[in-house]
């Protein structure tokens, strides 16, 4: 059963809630972190901690750091000191699908 935030009703979905903000009120419910070279969605009241490895340019990459300057995009620094920006929505989508790997394509 998916739970958004403590103040709002369950979402009754098939999957747990992978959002970082409550869909009802926008309150922050979980944080995205970098842990062991992967993206991690911190455990909240209804969810277990979820991990997402990153594949970039056909190779699995170690995520060294990440930052969200505008809240909608995530700037990631990867193991080869490469900088990429991805929409946070892609991360949330992947976590919601219970994907274990986030595949990022290099720009041509």
């Amino acid at each position: 059963m998916a739970k958004a935030c403590k103040r709002h009703p369950d979402l009754e979905g098939d999957l747990s809630y992978a959002g970082t903000y409550c869909v009802y009120c926008g309150e922050s419910v979980a944080r995205l972190e970098i842990e062991a070279g992967q993206i991690a969605l911190a455990k909240n009241s209804g969810n277990k901690k979820k991990y997402l490895a990153v594949e970039y340019g056909d190779k699995q990459s170690i995520v060294q750091a990440g930052d969200t300057p505008d809240g909608a995009t995530w700037d990631l620094r990867l193991n080869q000191n490469e900088q990429i920006s991805i929409p946070v929505a892609d991360v949330v989508n992947a976590l919601q699908r219970l994907d274990e790997l986030l595949i990022l394509r290099k720009k041509e």
Binding site: A4, Y17, A18, G19, T20, Y21, C22, V23, Y24, C25, G26, E27, S28, G71, A72, P87, V88, A89, V91, V92
Partner: peptide, 10 residues
């Protein structure tokens, strides 16, 4: 009204 679960946009 739906808040975005990724960016909290109202």
């Amino acid at each position: 009204r739906l808040y975005c679960p990724a960016c909290s946009q109202d």
